[in-house]
Simulated scan of single mutants.
Amino acid sequence: MSGQALFAAYKQAAGAGADLVIPVGQPVEALLRPIATASARINLNDARLLSEWRNRFVKSFLTEFDSHETRTANWLAGAVARDPGKILFMVDTLDGRSVGHVGLGFIDWDKGYVEADAIVRGGDCRKGLMTLALQALLHWARAGLGLDDAWVRVRSDNPAVAFYQKAGFSEVKRVALASSSADGQVTWVEDPTAGSDAPALVYMRYQAPE
């Protein structure tokens, strides 16, 4: 099975009662469960948690707005479902608690390029579990999907910069950001002319552990 076919299989199976999962840790201590995007299968608890956690860490995103369950469900069934290069997973502990989410996006199958996307710890879990979850996802991307060139982009004012460094990412460059506001939403875009006091978008590349 090709990487693209495997990716599509995980995404299509989500919420159908027989989810394909990715184990985290050795021994296994959590599972990456694909988040359903088919409108008839949307898990409303997933949508609630995604909204709650996004609002808690709103300053970490390039778009800042007030999220809620309906908006998130529509986003899953619309933007995420239609994007052939984006998938999200819940991080579920073995006792059934969802403690965060991780994802892949911006895939270029021809170039083997992928970005870690939507990495959020929302619930209580042991220190280091989210690092293991991200590394398990990136291992799957490399070994299962054939995506060898993994990156992440993160705002410089986001404490997650240190998290990504611990996970195996190294900074490559920074580009200044400028913000604009409209319809209750703040949007940050790259602007090299922005002042030195402005946050920057940090580009980081992943080096898989030996």
Rank of each mutant, 00 (worst) to 15 (best):
M1Y: 05
D19A: 15
V21F: 04
V24R: 12
Q26V: 15
L32S: 08
A38H: 04
S39K: 10
N43W: 12
L49H: 14
L50P: 10
W53T: 13
N55V: 08
R56Q: 11
T63H: 12
E69Y: 05
A77Q: 15
A79Q: 15
V80W: 07
A81F: 11
I87H: 02
F89L: 02
S98E: 06
G100S: 10
I107M: 03
D108R: 00
W109F: 03
V114C: 14
E115G: 03
V120D: 09
D124F: 07
D124T: 14
R126S: 01
K127Q: 07
G128E: 06
L134Q: 12
A136Q: 08
L137N: 09
W140K: 04
A141Y: 08
R142P: 00
G144R: 02
G146M: 06
R153G: 00
D157E: 13
D157L: 09
D157F: 07
V161R: 03
F163V: 09
K166D: 06
S179C: 15
S180I: 03
G184M: 05
V186W: 06
W188I: 09
V189W: 02
T193I: 02
T193E: 12
G195F: 12
G195N: 10
A198F: 00
P199E: 00
L201E: 00
M204T: 13
R205S: 08
